[in-house]
Nucleic acid binder design. Structure first.
Length: 902
RNA sequence: GCCGUUGUAGCUCAGGGGUAGAGCGCUCCCUUGGUAAGGGCGAGGUCAAGAGUUCAAAUCUCUUCAAUGGCACCA
């Protein structure tokens, strides 16, 4: 088949769909289903074929779902704010607005060629003012709420204010408790501000001089910036924070309600880092307090030193002494390098007998040991350093644990339970409960759930991001901007570059001198209304104040935290998404989106942030589902061969020809070494899907990409697309002939119906490679199809090769009456169970472990009849010279005949 | 160190208690008026290794090995 012919067919079909406005989605009476790809950054270099795996997969699923009678929400917009877009603008020395615009257009044309069935009327970019207006609006909602730990939900901040005013509640360690307070008005205001879910705080931040901005913990990998791999320094700065830690428990526990890949769930759980234990305070003689967190409070009487994180030097030394809260013994305090300042309280109670790191530290610094838990004998035997009689093992352990290889970190009965006032024999599980009672009754400490998760740093010293809807008065107090004045638009500014390598960050917006200061009045609800020149004169001068805008911008995660909601209601200018639309698309579901497809690299960033925003908006009553995404799938990463010349420089794939597994550089004729690498700019091995479509056709390309491997598995780009081309040509030709000749009967209806069954099942389970394999198999085994059956095959083919399917369908439609206008309007075919039932089966005859022949028999043949058939079989007779036993194995039907000679 | 995933033909992957499969690549043949192409025949495997369960194991169970992803002085 001539490629120009195929291109023509595909162009015509695209036009046909465009005219019919096939992809437009409206609320209707069908069952809704929403499919979403991860939000793409419109990068400067555009998409390569690796990116298309997920997109083609969701398109196949969307077409399949629609053909099954669902109303499918499937759209794509662009995450166009943020570092990637801005870095590209800096590198190419153009304004980000221009580069963003160009990049989006470039990407749209790449996506266009793939014929993804996105509803174009639902597309938007995060940089659109009528989009980021709502990003700012959501920020204000978060700013104006707090997390009520008593109800476990976010509430409007006014509720907290009135609670504190009522004097019935106190705030302790950021938690609300029912206890009378005597706060002053000023204290209340301060506490209320500190409890906001978006709050300003002086925090140690990750300052990246080379990027000229601070970064979130999640954006740091191995001490370097994830983007660009630049060094990162700690610095104290006043920054906006998001109180995500308040949601740690819900973020953790609700993971189990989601249909997500286990590795993503475990990554999020790791990141949130839930651990349960006790907070215990040790007092020093000088009155200083050491708050420690322990997951093993039952070892309280085994503490022989307190270890604090080593802040300044790396020298481990004793610095203080504390009193044990029960025994009143004196315990030394040491600085230890193994203690992490950021984790827990940065201080721990060291129990050398029962913690390996404490064990080693104590040995090194000659600190004593106090075993309190009894190990089992197997452990004692295995870990004893010197040989000792078995009866003496436990005594040795009790007196000198250094005679053993390591600390005993397991559980077990306490050696001296009386210390916890336990006097009867109880199980280890009950022992834990008693220890808890003891610690709580004696008020030594309290039981808490601790999380590794930190609050989310939300400020960036960048130009290309959403401005905060916040201003400051002369005293530095923050005020939200009046909701009705949103959006706060970015100033048109051509000096947008951050100042790199500065000692401290200076946000680029500081240079927007006309923008950064405003006149305004404080409204009754506490927000600021900004006034233009004419308005100022209508207010008394003592009401009008000068404010400075917040000069930092939001991180690019902000826009991607809620975009999935906007697809449901993209043009609404009275709310970010209406309840009616939510009720239609997501009623009674766990997640608002049914299926979410995207790479594992966002496991702890976007997927955690988006869940957090969702939960806040859910608590405040704006959303109807407890989670954003019900089912998540990660397409595998695609690698491709990269080519390196003798100097070790990567050569562009365009300049390479591969023959017999040797690579030659076309321009120089020199041999190249081949090695695989992640597809992309770095290895110069990115392949533009547009080129592939032009060269082989969209349908062939789509099927080829899907056939390489299961969607969720990493794969290597296979440049040899010929196999799929052959299949395409072959089935195209075959069906074309069938349509031209108009056969009345199909060769093998059973095979066709088996294919319906298997293609359907494979698509449902997201195994598109095997779905295509089933179609290839059908094509290899059946020659003639009736017109009706041609339609069925085209329907099966449609999700994968939509143009070819539609093209041939239109020919059939012109010959047959009563067919709907487009192939998608047909209901997905069902198989006839009667036609896939086997009547004949193959029965292997196994003689002493070797298959000697295979009989083809009717499925209902009895054992006796089979035995006669075997005895009559000349091929088998020669093996039956000696005596033998014969057995027919059945499972619903005869499976195998086993012959054992003796 | 902890948690997860994967080992099947040279490559990419199906299958999965009952004859070992597909596409590419490779051999050979046919087409020479679609030719930097098309079609056909064929060769290729101890299903990572070992043990167990079973009449029967690539498939189930356990152990080991190897790849790979994530987390990690987490108290």
């Amino acid at each position: 088949m001539d490629i120009s012919h195929i291109n023509l067919i595909e162009t015509n079909i695209k036009n046909l769909w465009k005219v019919a406005d096939l992809y437009r989605t409206e609320v209707n009476s069908k069952t809704p289903y929403s499919i979403l790809d991860f939000f793409p950054h419109p990068s400067g270099i555009g998409l390569h074929v690796g990116h298309t795996v997920g997109y083609i997969a969701t398109d196949i699923f969307a077409r399949f779902k629609r053909a099954n009678g669902y109303n499918v929400l499937y759209a794509m917009g662009f995450d166009s704010f943020g570092l990637p877009a801005e870095q590209f603008a800096i590198q190419t020395n153009q304004h980000p607005e221009i580069t963003t615009h160009n990049n989006i257009n470039n990407m749209l044309s790449q996506l266009e060629c793939l014929s993804l069935s996105h509803d174009p009327s639902r597309s938007f970019s995060t940089t659109d003012t009528d989009y980021y207006k709502w990003t700012q609006w959501i920020f204000l909602k978060i700013y104006n709420s707090y997390f009520n730990n008593l109800t476990g939900k976010a509430e409007p901040i006014e509720n907290l204010y009135s609670k504190l005013k009522s004097k019935k509640y106190t705030i302790e360690d950021g938690l609300l408790i029912e206890l009378e307070n005597n706060y002053s008005e000023e204290e209340i205001n301060q506490l209320v501000n500190s409890m906001r879910l978006a709050y300003l705080n002086d925090v140690e931040v990750n300052w990246c001089p080379m990027l000229g901005t601070v970064l979130a913990n999640e954006e740091i990998k191995n001490g370097k910036s994830e983007r660009g791999n630049h060094p990162v320094e700690k610095r104290k700065m006043k920054q906006w924070m998001m109180g995500i830690t308040a949601y740690a428990d819900r973020l953790y526990n609700q993971l189990d309600t989601l249909d997500w890949p286990t590795n993503i769930v475990s990554m999020q759980k790791n990141w949130i880092g839930k651990s349960e234990g006790a907070l215990i305070t040790f007092h020093s003689k000088t009155g200083k307090q050491y708050k420690i967190f322990t997951t093993k409070p039952e070892t309280l009487f085994g503490v022989t030193f307190i270890a604090v994180a080593n802040q300044e030097d790396q020298v481990e030394k004793q610095i203080d002494e504390v009193i044990h809260p029960i025994t009143k013994e004196t315990i030394p305090v040491w600085t230890a390098n193994y203690v992490i300042g950021d984790y827990g309280t940065g201080t721990l109670m060291a129990v050398p007998a029962h913690d390996q790191r404490d064990f080693e530290f104590a040995k090194q610094h000659n600190i004593n040991f106090k075993p309190v838990v009894r190990p089992n004998y197997a452990w004692l035997v295995e870990n004893a350093l010197e040989s000792m009689p078995q009866s003496q093992l436990l005594n040795h352990w009790k007196t000198d644990p250094t005679k053993f290889k390591s600390a005993y970190e397991g559980t077990g009965p306490l050696i001296t339970p009386q210390q916890f006032e336990i006097f009867e024999d109880i199980s280890v599980k009950n022992q834990k409960k008693q220890v808890r009672n003891f610690i709580e009754q004696k008020k030594i400490g309290k039981y808490v759930t601790q999380h590794k998760l930190r609050d989310w740093l939300f400020s960036r010293q960048r130009y290309w991001g959403e401005p905060f809807p916040i201003v400051f008065d002369k005293a530095g107090n923050a005020y939200p901007i009046d909701e009705n004045q949103l959006p706060v638009e970015l100033p048109q500014q051509y000096d947008f570059k951050p100042e790199l390598n500065q000692q401290s960050p200076r946000p680029p917006l500081e240079k927007a001198s006309n923008w950064k200061t405003v006149q305004g009045i404080i409204l009754d609800n506490g927000s600021v209304k900004i006034l233009n020149q004419n308005e100022i004169n209508t207010y008394p001068t003592n009401m009008v104040q000068t404010f400075t805008r917040e000069l930092n911008t939001m991180p690019n995660w902000a826009g991607s935290c809620w975009y999935y909601l906007r697809y449901m209601d993209p043009k609404n200018d009275s709310t970010f998404v209406s309840k009616e639309k939510l009720e239609y698309w997501a009623k009674d579901k766990i997640g608002t989106i049914d299926l979410y497809v995207g790479g594992a690299e966002h496991a702890v960033l976007h997927l955690l942030y988006a869940r957090f925003w969702h939960m806040v908006l859910f608590d405040l009553g704006y959303l109807i589902n407890p989670e954003p995404f019900t089912k998540l799938l990660n397409p595998g990463m695609m690698t491709a061969d990269a080519y390196m010349d003798e100097r070790g420089v990567y050569v562009d794939v365009e300049d390479v020809v591969v023959k017999n597994q040797t690579a030659i550089q076309i321009s120089t004729g020199k041999p190249l070494t081949i090695e695989p690498g992640k597809m992309g700019k770095r290895y110069k091995n990115g392949i533009d899907p547009k080129d592939m479509c032009a060269k082989y056709g969209v349908d062939v390309f789509r099927m080829h990409v899907m056939y390489i491997s299961p969607v969720t598995q990493s794969s290597t780009w296979n440049a040899n697309i010929k196999g799929m081309q052959r299949f395409y040509n072959s089935i195209h030709q075959k069906l074309q002939d069938c349509i031209d000749i108009e056969y009345s009967k199909t060769d093998d209806t059973s095979q066709l119906h088996k294919t319906i069954l298997s293609v359907t099942e494979e698509i449902v389970n997201f195994r598109f490679n095997t779905a295509i394999a089933a179609l290839i198999k059908l094509n290899n085994s059946v020659e003639k199809f009736s017109m009706n059956d041609c339609v069925i095959i085209l329907q099966l083919l449609y999700p994968f090769a939509p143009h070819l399917a539609e093209h041939l369908y239109q020919q059939i439609r012109s010959k047959m009456n009563n067919l709907p206008q487009l192939i998608e309007h047909l209901q997905w075919p069902t198989y006839d169970p009667k036609l896939i039932v086997e009547t004949k089966i193959k029965l292997p005859v196994n003689i002493d472990g070797k298959i000697r022949d295979v009989l083809e028999i009717d499925i209902n043949t009895t054992d006796d009849e089979i035995k006669i058939l075997i005895l009559q079989n000349t091929k088998i007779q020669k093996y039956l010279q000696q005596s033998y036993s014969l057995q027919i194995i059945r499972k619903d039907k005869p499976i195998i005949a086993n012959v054992t000679t003796t």
